[in-house]
Amino acid sequence: MNRLDVLDWRRRVAALYARVRELDPAAGHAVWVAGREELFATHPAGPLLPADRERFTGLPVAAYDPALRFEVPVEPAAPLRREAVTGTDGTVVFERVGAVALPGVGTLDVWWLDQYGGGLFVPLKDPGPGYGGGRYVLDTVKGADLGSTGRGLVVDLNFAYPPSCAYDPVWACPLPPPGNVVDVAVRAGELAGPWGTP
Rank of each mutant, 00 (worst) to 15 (best):
A77N: 14
V182K: 12
G35M: 11
H43W: 01
G133H: 02
R53I: 03
P73R: 10
L153S: 12
A45M: 01
V170A: 12
V20I: 13
E83D: 11
T107N: 09
L49D: 07
P129E: 13
G128P: 07
L157N: 10
A15V: 09
V33W: 11
G117N: 08
G98L: 12
V184R: 15
A77F: 11
D89S: 02
L49C: 08
P129D: 14
A45L: 01
V105R: 08
F121I: 04
R69S: 08
L175H: 07
R135W: 08
A34T: 15
K125G: 09
P176Y: 06
A160W: 01
R36N: 15
A15R: 15
Y116E: 14
R81T: 08
G134M: 08
V97R: 03
D114H: 10
G58K: 09
G106Q: 08
A101R: 15
S164W: 00
G119Q: 05
V141L: 12
D8E: 13
H43L: 03
A188P: 11
W195R: 10
E54I: 04
W9G: 04
V13E: 01
D168G: 00
P127V: 13
V31W: 12
E71F: 02
G35T: 13
G58C: 09
T149S: 11
L49N: 05
F40T: 07
V170E: 13
V137Y: 03
V105P: 02
D8S: 05
V33F: 10
G132L: 07
P79W: 04
G46S: 13
G117K: 04
D24E: 15
P50Q: 12
E83R: 09
V61F: 03
D24K: 12
V92D: 04
G87M: 02
G143F: 03
D5V: 06
P129W: 06
L7H: 01
V184A: 14
M1P: 09
D145R: 04
P127M: 14
L120M: 14
G143L: 03
A45F: 00
P123A: 02
W112T: 05
A144R: 10
P47E: 04
Y64A: 03
W171C: 01
P123Q: 06
E54R: 15
L59S: 05
F40I: 03
T42K: 00
L191H: 02
F40D: 06
R11F: 01
D89Q: 01
L153P: 12
R135P: 07
V184P: 15
G119W: 02
A166L: 02
A26V: 00
P177M: 04
A15Y: 11
D52I: 00
G179N: 11
A30C: 03
P194Y: 00
R82M: 06
Y167K: 00
D52W: 01
E75C: 08
M1T: 07
P162A: 15
A63P: 07
G28M: 06
D139Q: 01
F70I: 06
A185C: 14
Y167N: 09
P178E: 11
V97K: 02
E95R: 10
E37Y: 03
A99K: 14
T91K: 11
P44F: 03
G58R: 10
L124H: 08
V110Y: 07
T197N: 12
H29S: 06
F70M: 04
L7V: 08
L124T: 09
A166Y: 01
